[in-house]
């Protein structure tokens, strides 16, 4: 069983426009890749991501995304100021296809991501079949 994940560093994200970030996320997710952003999207970007996801949904292949931004809740003014000085915008973010991810949630000291194992097996089998077909055509 295979799970592919892309980790995107904050410095790469800093050089990207919102539209590019969203396209990169959607493209990866449609290839069944889970994306971890070192620095999460802003709430406005999240809303744009949801909008873009809704436009891409098709009945057969793509049913949407699961995502979770890990931020400390209710930061004090001092913590907000420290973030500002350090140039930190938000915590990391995990985004994945709803087909593969059952749930992402934050526990006290860690984040839990539950994958749909049966669906992962189906995706791997599908990928293997596609590779074989390509080989045979060659």
């Amino acid at each position: 069983m295979e799970i592919k994940m892309h980790f995107i560093p904050a410095e790469v994200l800093a050089g990207m426009r919102t539209v590019d970030k969203i396209n990169m996320i959607i493209d990866s997710i449609k290839k069944n890749i889970i994306v971890v952003l070192e620095e999460g999207l802003t709430p406005q970007e999240e809303a744009e991501l949801i909008e873009a996801t809704m436009r891409e949904i098709d009945a057969e292949n793509f049913h949407g995304i699961e995502f979770f931004r890990v931020d400390k809740r209710n930061k004090s003014l001092r913590e907000k100021l420290a973030d500002k000085i350090a140039g930190r915008k938000s915590g990391f973010m995990i985004v994945g296809p709803t087909r593969m991810i059952e749930e992402i949630k934050k526990e006290t000291n860690y984040v839990v991501m539950l994958a749909r194992v049966d669906e992962l097996c189906r995706i791997n089998a599908q990928n293997a079949e596609e590779s074989m077909t390509k080989e045979q055509k060659k």
Binding site: M54, I57, G64, F67, T98
Partner: peptide, 29 residues
């Protein structure tokens, strides 16, 4: 507001496939 819309969810409530797909499309809009 949702991040996912799967027409098969609607079929669990007794909608036929065509109706479920139409509802899913409307839901995304």
């Amino acid at each position: 507001i949702a991040t996912q819309v799967d027409y098969r969810t609607f079929m669990e409530y007794g909608l036929d496939e065509e109706e479920a797909k139409r509802r899913a499309k409307e839901a995304t809009r």
